[in-house]
Design a protein around this nucleic acid. Structure first.
Length: 190
DNA sequence: GACATGATTGCA
DNA sequence: GCAATCATGTCT
């Protein structure tokens, strides 16, 4: 397995392209000396200023979203209800865009992941949601602002996706037209 | 389809 | 301070 982190330049591409390019890559986390790896299979792009569903809509900057206004390639974690959601900051500085990781497939470190998640990794509901995958991979608010080219949490090259499907985003309550934007990418099951 | 559950936010 | 909000998960 290739464990070289993707270069910083990878994160400089257009946010929507980045969301698509992240499909099939490997999210690798070293937690308590053990390595767990998930293959990213579902992402969503959030385009800051234009996007009513984004936390940084119309350049709204708060303590929570501050990291979005910095350089890309960083982790934006955010607590939703009782869960922690994982985003990757995209866009240039002062361009508050991000990609939400919505789903992964277990690749390596099954025992550790099962212990973290408290469920069998073979279950179809194991890591097919933004709150589930952070739990399975041991990602917490401690990773807020972490740079993804450095240990213990990195993204490295995975395998080519078979087929990418583009749909509108889901789980957004009130965001008017923004919820219809086709900014969700999923790898279709073989 | 209901509700549990916690951090953030905006306003008093 | 406090109440409304929420990019969810799990149960029925």
């Amino acid at each position: 397995m290739n464990s070289n982190p993707l270069p910083y330049s990878f994160y400089k591409q257009d946010t929507i392209h980045l969301a698509k390019a992240l499909i099939g890559t490997h999210l690798m986390h070293t937690v308590a000396g053990e390595i767990v790896v998930g293959r990213i299979i579902e992402t969503e792009a959030y385009l800051g200023v234009l996007d009513k569903a984004c936390h940084s809509y119309s350049n709204k900057q708060t303590k929570r979203t501050a990291i979005l206004f910095g350089p890309p390639g960083r982790v934006y974690t955010y607590t939703m209800h009782t869960h922690c959601l994982l985003n990757i900051v995209a866009g240039k500085e002062d361009q508050p865009e991000a990609v939400l990781i919505r789903g992964v497939k277990p690749v390596f470190g099954f025992e550790k992941m099962e212990a973290l998640r408290g469920m069998k990794a073979t279950s179809t509901t194991f890591s097919n949601g933004p709150g589930k995958l952070t739990k399975a991979l041991g990602i917490t608010m401690n990773h807020y602002g972490h740079f993804l080219c450095e240990d213990p949490l990195i993204i490295c090259e995975g395998s080519e996706p078979t087929r990418i499907e583009v749909t509108n985003r889901i789980g957004i309550g009130k965001a008017d037209q923004a919820k219809h934007y086709p900014w969700r990418f999923i790898e279709k099951e073989i």
